[in-house]
C-alpha cells in the first residue's frame, strides 16, 4: 500500500496547450480547402465556357426536361401512395392469401433494381403484343412515358406500403383501444386518431422515398423519355460540352436540398406540440 502511494512521485500538472490547432482542425482545414478549390474550379469552368448560344439552344430543353421529371415523380408518387394502401392492408390482413400476395409484391419490387423493372415493363411486355393488342392496351405499353409511370408507381407503392405499415404499427395499441372505448367507428378511428399520429412518424420516410424516386427518375432517360437526364444526355451527345452534366447536377442537387430543407421546416412546425421546451 505504501509503495503504491510512495512509488509514484507527484507529477507536475500538464503544460497548458499552446496551440488550438489540433490534428482534426488541420485536416478539416485542408479538406475544406480542397472543397473550396473544387467549387471555385467548377465556377471557373462554367464561367470560362459560358456560351450564350449553347444556353439559348439547350436552356429551353432543360426546362422542359425538368418539367417532365417533376411530372413523372409527382404522378407516380401519388399513384403509388394510393396503391400502397391496399398493399399495406394486405400485409396486415388475416387472409393468408392476401398476406402472401402483398408480401410477394413488396419483396419483388424492393428486391430488384428499378432499371430491371422498367425494362421488364417497357421492353419485356412487348413479347405479348398480340395479346395486348387484342385487349386494346397496346397503346399504353408502346409508349415509354406511360411505361415509366407504371414502373415507378409499382416500385414506389412497394416502398410506401412498408412505410405506411411501419407508421401505423408505431401507434400504440392503447390508442386503438381508447378509440374503441369511445365508441368511434373504424373509419373515424383511423382518420381522427391513428392517421394524425402515424403521418407524423411517416413524414420523414415519405420524403426520403420521394427523394429516392426523384433520383431514380434519372433512369427513364435510358428508355428514351426526355426528362432532365435525357435532355442532358442529348445536349452532351450533340455539343460534347461537359458543362451540360454540371448544370444537371446542380439542378438535381438544388431540388433534393429544397425537399430536404422544406421537410425539416415542416417537421419542426408539425411537431411543436410534442416537443419539450
Amino acid at each position: 500500500m505504501t509503495t503504491a502511494f510512495n512509488g509514484i512521485a507527484a507529477q507536475p500538472a500538464p503544460a497548458p496547450q499552446k496551440s488550438r490547432m489540433s490534428k482534426a482542425r488541420v485536416l478539416g482545414l485542408i479538406l475544406l480547402a480542397i472543397w473550396t478549390a473544387c467549387a471555385l474550379g467548377i465556377v471557373y469552368f462554367l464561367v470560362s465556357s459560358w456560351n450564350p448560344e449553347l444556353v439559348a439552344r439547350y436552356g429551353p430543353n432543360y426546362a422542359s426536361g425538368l418539367w417532365v421529371t417533376v411530372k413523372l415523380v409527382v404522378i407516380s408518387f401519388i399513384a403509388g401512395a394510393i396503391l400502397s394502401v391496399p398493399v399495406a392492408m394486405g400485409r396486415k390482413s388475416a387472409n393468408s392469401l392476401a398476406r402472401g400476395l402483398s408480401y410477394g409484391y413488396v419483396y419483388f419490387f424492393r428486391g430488384t433494381p428499378l432499371l430491371a423493372q422498367t425494362f421488364l415493363i417497357y421492353y419485356g411486355l412487348g413479347s405479348f403484343r398480340p395479346q395486348l393488342d387484342a385487349i386494346g392496351l397496346w397503346w399504353f405499353f408502346r409508349d415509354a412515358w406511360y411505361c415509366a409511370i407504371l414502373a415507378f408507381t409499382l416500385n414506389t407503392a412497394a416502398y410506401q406500403a412498408e412505410i405506411l405499415r411501419g407508421a401505423i404499427a408505431s401507434v400504440p395499441r392503447g390508442q386503438w383501444e381508447a378509440a374503441a372505448a369511445l365508441g368511434l367507428s373504424r373509419w373515424i378511428t383511423i382518420r381522427k386518431v391513428i392517421a394524425p399520429q402515424a403521418m407524423l412518424v411517416a413524414l420523414r420516410p415519405y420524403v426520403n422515398e420521394l427523394i429516392l424516386l426523384l433520383k431514380g427518375s434519372a433512369i427513364v432517360a435510358i428508355i428514351t423519355v426526355f426528362d432532365l437526364m435525357g435532355e442532358t444526355r442529348r445536349a452532351y451527345a450533340r455539343s460534347f460540352d461537359f458543362q451540360t452534366y454540371i448544370w444537371a447536377a446542380l439542378i438535381y442537387l438544388a431540388l433534393v436540398e429544397l425537399l430536404r430543407i422544406g421537410t425539416e421546416k415542416a417537421e419542426q412546425r408539425l411537431t411543436r406540440h410534442i416537443r419539450r421546451a
Binding site: G216, A218, I219, M229, Y245, A249
Partner: peptide, 14 residues
C-alpha cells in the same frame, strides 16, 4: 443528393 446515374456519368466522362 445526386442521382446515382448522374454520379456515374460525372465520374466516367469527367
Amino acid at each position: 443528393g445526386l442521382p446515382e446515374l448522374l454520379t456515374l456519368f460525372l465520374v466516367y466522362y469527367g
